[in-house]
Design a protein around this nucleic acid. Structure first.
Length: 101
DNA sequence: AGCATGACGCGGG
DNA sequence: TCCCGCGCCATGC
């Protein structure tokens, strides 16, 4: 994917409010690429210290295996509980980028 | 050009 | 809800 795609993905994710989360697919739709959820994930393979990548999970509220430990800690620090690899009350804390445009 | 892969999504059963 | 299959699409070999 091109650089602008990544820029927009990062931009949207920075907008996620503290204590809320969203999904790869939702971000993809928000930047105008409805069928590129996988690429959103790819764009997130590297990010800065302060970047809230932990606020992004799949459409069913599950955290990807490799980042489980790190993400659940950060999420817990923001008041979001993680049970197993799943975000508790996902529907409640879900933030939809589209509705915020 | 063909095939596998991946921080994914969705509809069915 | 869980599990599965299929769709999706850039990338790399």
């Amino acid at each position: 994917m091109d650089e602008t795609f990544r820029q927009q993905v990062f931009e949207i994710i920075r907008l996620i409010p503290l204590g809320r989360v969203t999904s790869y697919g939702a971000v993809a739709r928000a930047v105008g690429y409805p069928n590129h959820a996988r690429h959103v994930g790819n764009a997130l393979r590297h990010y800065d210290e302060d970047f809230p990548a932990h606020r992004v999970c799949n459409s069913s509220g599950q955290i990807t295996a490799g980042c489980l430990a790190e993400f659940s800690d950060k999420l817990a620090a923001e008041g979001i509980e993680v049970v197993g690899n799943r975000i508790k009350d996902f529907r409640k804390v879900f933030w939809n980028p589209i509705e915020e445009l």
